[in-house]
């Protein structure tokens, strides 16, 4: 049922997928032409593209709204740096806690209920608390993201370490690997594919969360641009901000996917 022809599967991108993407843009363009949706509400793709190019590297228009002279790029940099910093912190903390919980039963008994609860609740609920505790600063957004990222990375790291075939650990030990080597060469490398899966999921959710927490209150960032422009009813700029953020999210996803394939190129891959 699901067989695609082999020659196509070898290309990095399915040409039919490109057609699908173009169709999506065409649909957007078509909808923006209808008059019952005023041009103000759904800007046409070309207008959004123009807004992006005009305001990308510097923008006195955005500067009017206290969003700096760096244009979309400057605000994007703020958003990206928050997402990346939060993810980096979460990887270290999440992997360490996840591995520890897979090895130490007592630690797991305590950590699991907290992490599993935190993993299922709508984390967004905590955003206003961080605003009160940290004010409208970078810390409020980063704290929210860390809370979100850590629970996911923790869970994937734990599962990866728990699922790792104990034969590998035994083999490493008989070959003379000490505890540090076992962690770095067996657990870390063996668990990498699954941890990467978690990182990818965390990252995909983080962009929207970051943008939204900026909407609630932040010095700058893409979310702030969206908020300020929405207040001005400038839907073209709102879309411009959303689209650049979406492009960044996709680019990160592709990059992470590529890095993942490279680092774990030893894996046997299922041919689809």
């Amino acid at each position: 049922m699901a067989r695609t022809s082999l020659s196509v599967a070898r290309l990095p991108v399915d040409p039919l997928g490109i057609i699908g993407l173009l169709a999506l843009v065409a649909l957007w363009w078509g909808l923006s032409q209808f008059h019952f949706l005023s041009r103000l509400a759904l800007p046409p793709p070309a207008g959004v593209a123009a807004a992006i190019t005009q305001n990308f590297f510097s923008s006195s228009y955005l500067a009017n709204y206290h969003l700096g002279y760096g244009g979309l790029a400057g605000n994007l940099a703020y958003t990206i740096s928050n997402v990346v910093v939060a993810l980096a912190v979460s990887c270290v903390v999440g992997v360490a806690l996840g591995f520890a919980s897979a090895r130490v039963e007592l630690f797991r008994a305590f950590a699991d209920p907290i992490m599993l609860t935190a993993g299922t609740i709508p984390i967004l609920v905590t955003a206003p608390f961080f605003l009160i505790w940290f004010g409208t600063s970078r810390s409020a957004q980063i704290a929210l993201l860390i809370l979100f990222d850590v629970t996911i990375v923790y869970l994937f790291a734990q599962r990866a370490a728990a699922n790792l075939d104990p034969t590998y650990v035994a083999a490493g030990r008989t070959l003379g690997a000490g505890p540090m080597r076992i962690v770095s060469d067996v657990y870390l490398k063996g668990a990498l594919p699954e941890v990467f899966g978690g990182i990818r999921i965390a990252l995909a959710g983080a962009w929207g969360l970051e943008a939204f927490s900026e909407l609630l209150g932040a010095p700058k960032g893409v979310g702030r641009v969206i908020q300020a422009m929405a207040a001005e009813m400038d839907s073209q700029m709102v879309f411009a901000a959303i689209m650049t953020l979406a492009a960044v999210a996709v680019a990160f996803d592709v990059a992470i996917g590529g890095a993942f394939d490279f680092i774990t190129r030893w894996r046997r891959r299922a041919r689809l």
């Binding site: 929207g208 009813m233 996709v250």
Partner: peptide, 14 residues
């Protein structure tokens, strides 16, 4: 799937 959905809320309000 990687689209930042939450950023779209202001549009829905518009």
């Amino acid at each position: 799937r990687t689209f930042p959905m939450l950023a779209l809320i202001p549009m829905f309000q518009l």
